Amino acid sequence: MTFVTTLRFTSGDRRVLDDVVNNIKQTAKRKGAELKGPHSKSPNAVRVPLSNCPGRDGGLIDSWRYTIYTRTIHIIGHSEFARATAGRDFPDDIHVEVDVERRTGAGRT
């Protein structure tokens, strides 16, 4: 039975996101951990309407636009490395989601 830890990173700052993911990738290589990714998702452009002042009658002005970037990596086995990586302190610009899945070999229940 193998545990696969999926880490999903999202951020509006592409440079910081890529720095964090590349650092994890290099650390995994040094420690001999099996890593899949990073997998990039298409950037998500977000638009937020803004008003001149609070309240219903404030009137709308140009929208605030920003882009959200996503990177996903999978750590196969190496639970100590996965736990240490998921528990790291990441920059405030980075949002991290962690999912752990138990996988069994073919033919096993």
Score class of each variant (00 low, 15 high):
R47Y: 06
D18I: 03
K36T: 03
R65D: 13
V46M: 15
I94Q: 00
Y66E: 08
K29D: 11
D93I: 01
D92E: 09
Q26I: 01
E101A: 08
R83K: 10
V46E: 13
R8H: 03
N22I: 01
V96G: 03
G32M: 08
N22E: 13
S63E: 13
A86D: 01
D62R: 12
V96F: 05
H95V: 09
V48P: 01
R56F: 14
A84G: 05
M1F: 06
R47M: 13
T10L: 04
N23W: 03
A84R: 06
V20R: 00
N44W: 04
T5G: 02
P49I: 09
R88A: 07
G77N: 12
D18H: 05
D13M: 01
R102Y: 05
D57P: 04
G12K: 13
E80D: 10
R103I: 12
R88S: 09
V20G: 00
D93R: 03
A82C: 05
T67G: 04
D19Q: 09
G32C: 07
T109L: 12
D13L: 04
P43N: 14
R65C: 14
F3P: 00
A82N: 03
R65L: 13
I94F: 00
I61M: 11
R8N: 08
N22Y: 02
G107I: 05
R30I: 06
T27F: 01
R14A: 04
S40V: 03
H78T: 04
A28Q: 03
T104C: 07
A28C: 05
V98F: 03
R47K: 15
R56C: 10
R15P: 00
F9M: 03
I61C: 07
Y69G: 03
G107K: 09
T109Y: 08
S51I: 04
D92W: 00
Q26V: 02
F81D: 06
R30C: 03
S42H: 10
V16H: 00
D99V: 14
C53Q: 12
R103P: 00
D89C: 01
L17T: 00
D89L: 05
S42G: 06
G77T: 09
K41I: 11
D18R: 04
P91T: 01
T85V: 10
P91C: 04
E97L: 12
I61F: 02
G58A: 14
K29R: 13
R15H: 11
G105S: 11
R65F: 13
